[in-house]
Design a protein around this nucleic acid. Structure first.
Lengths: 343, 343
DNA sequence: GTGAAAGCGCTAACAA
DNA sequence: TTGTTAGCGCTTTCAC
């Protein structure tokens, strides 16, 4: 009755969860065969497929994609970086990205950079450490270290919501300069002459603002008044901005706002002061939020198709991950001015 | 000059990136020592620390956390599931979660469930496959399969934005029934007697609505009119709902909306029709969005501290991951009615 | 404080 | 179509 043999060495590691080996044993096949039954069912006989499926069902097995990612160098993880998620602007893009990626079996990791670049390096380190199959950035990368780091990591990168002649890798966006110009031309064509702009102090707004002012000046309009507000922009800062503006230039007859939220603030303040929109003051927003069409008066705004941007970005990443060649690495999604009641 | 030895066997696997072994070799220490220098610097001599740091800097090494997670059974990944990201309600929670987790070295994975449960199973599979150290859910899990699956996975779960006597694991939320009651009492105390509710058709809104109606009835108010709108709620559906309501019950003097966006819609429609808020119609929202305080009139609403919910959820997960015991697994964050001009 | 050995759970590469 | 072998890059365990 003695048990002279050494006890079974049960080194306590691992999670104790069902593994592919368990499934394979139950199905009576080799682990790699079970793996193939799950990844590429077409490469496996119907009989094996059934046995493996049964084993999976009976054990409640869920593939460990950490292990799979390590072995195959494909994590099926995609990182997205936005300035902030609690701002309506990038929501559609993030939603479309999540959905489109999920369809292809990829999962989205979210990172918030804030509107300042201070944590950028830490964020990049955290992201690269997960070895994502792609990184989707809001805006373009400016810091040389950031660019170097991203390039060195060899991970496909999609810059979005902007346009540049020197993209890091792939790009889906539109021209902020064109937006500024188009809105200035639009307002001038509407007969407005005393233009103003309320802009968030982030870099992209600034470029819209400069182009707006420049284009207006070129059209012979008087100097454009500018009110800067901190990003992220809010309804509140829109109200304050209009109050400020009217104090300095009471005869202002049109305001271009760098977000629909700002525009709603401007319209709210106008309403509170009994200023008629659009009769006395035309208001143009940016972003075409879901509610902008239903405001009273309905808001004229610059429409960006955030959903299309997100979908295209996902397509870029997935194509790259599957090894397909990308013919056209830069997509200008453009924009449109949606004319409604506020002008 | 012949090279009779077999060529170095360079089996092409792996990403070719710098590994911890490279760093260790450069620093002249064993890999495990380099690992300790990075994970637990206090367990290592100052000399080793310096040599490893130099090697990291020189090589641009970034730790592979897929490998680390596999070896240690700690992925430092946390999954969050929201109905949709493009809706303002859960933004604060997601933002707080992302930030709080990042501080502890965890990364957030985002999943969208939609307002229907159809894809729930696929989503859970995708999530569990990443072996996250925690899962944060919006709402409570109802489907028996979902509960079983989550339990079987052995991953810490935090249910949020709701309260239930039977939480799956941990919970941070508040009582929707209490909200409904409190708002009914509030409006009755304000002298309103002809109450109505505009509610999204998701399950949580319904519970608020029922409690609202019941509590109003108990207070002797006439039957509460209810307009249901599809989730996610929008400004547009708020406008339509008020139009509908006024047609049926023109004498309605107070509306409780299941979101601030709906409330804005109701106020917008009222304004368009020349109905004075609050004189003729009191409006109460839900959520206290960032802009609600600055509307004209400022919106009375139910304030939920989404940031606190996110932070507490993150704390729960991190505590569990670090092996700390959780004394109190259920936190009722409560709510408050913020009284402003619209009532 | 430092290191050697042995995996974590999976899949690429090669062979049959 | 299926299997064998050998890692992916890291950390646990145990020993010094």
């Amino acid at each position: 009755m003695n048990a002279p043999t050494p006890p079974a060495r049960r080194s306590r590691r691992g999670s104790g969860a069902v593994t592919l080996h368990d499934v394979a044993r139950l199905a009576g096949v080799a682990p790699i065969t079970a793996s193939r039954a799950l990844s590429t069912p077409s490469q496996v006989s119907a009989d094996v497929l059934r046995k493996v499926s049964d084993a999976v069902a009976n054990t409640g097995y869920v593939r460990n994609r950490l292990a799979g990612g390590l072995a195959s160098s494909r994590s099926r993880l995609v990182a997205a970086v936005v300035p902030t998620i609690s701002g309506p602007v990038f929501q559609q893009t993030v939603q479309a990205l999540t959905d489109a990626l999920a369809e292809h079996g990829y999962q989205l990791m979210l990172g918030q950079s804030g509107y300042v670049d201070s944590r950028e390096d830490a964020l990049l380190e955290a992201i690269i450490g997960r070895r994502p199959d792609g990184i989707v950035l809001t805006g373009i990368v400016h810091s040389p270290q950031g660019r170097r780091r991203l390039l060195a990591a060899g991970i496909p990168v999609v810059e979005t919501w902007d346009l540049t002649p020197t993209p890091l890798d792939m790009l889906v966006g539109f021209s902020h300069v064109e937006v500024g110009r188009a809105v200035a031309d639009f307002l001038v064509a509407k007969g407005r002459r005393r233009l103003a702009m309320v802009a968030g102090d982030d870099e992209r707004s600034s470029r819209r603002q400069q182009a707006f002012a420049q284009s207006a000046r070129a059209a012979g309009v008087r100097e454009v008044a500018v009110v800067n507000v901190p990003a992220p922009t809010t309804l509140k800062s829109g109200r304050a901005a209009l109050a400020d503006l009217l104090q300095r230039l009471p005869d202002t007859d049109a305001v271009f706002c760098s977000s629909d939220l700002l525009a709603l603030g401007v319209m709210t303040e106008a309403q509170a002061r009994g200023i008629a929109v659009p009769a006395q003051l035309a208001v143009v927003g940016f972003g075409d939020l879901e509610f902008s069409a239903d405001l009273h008066p309905a808001l004229t705004t610059v429409r960006i198709d955030g959903t299309a941007i997100g979908r295209q970005a996902a397509q870029f990443i997935v194509d790259r991950a599957e090894g397909r060649e990308i013919a056209q690495r830069v997509v200008d999604m453009g924009f449109s001015i949606v004319e409604r009641e506020s002008t």
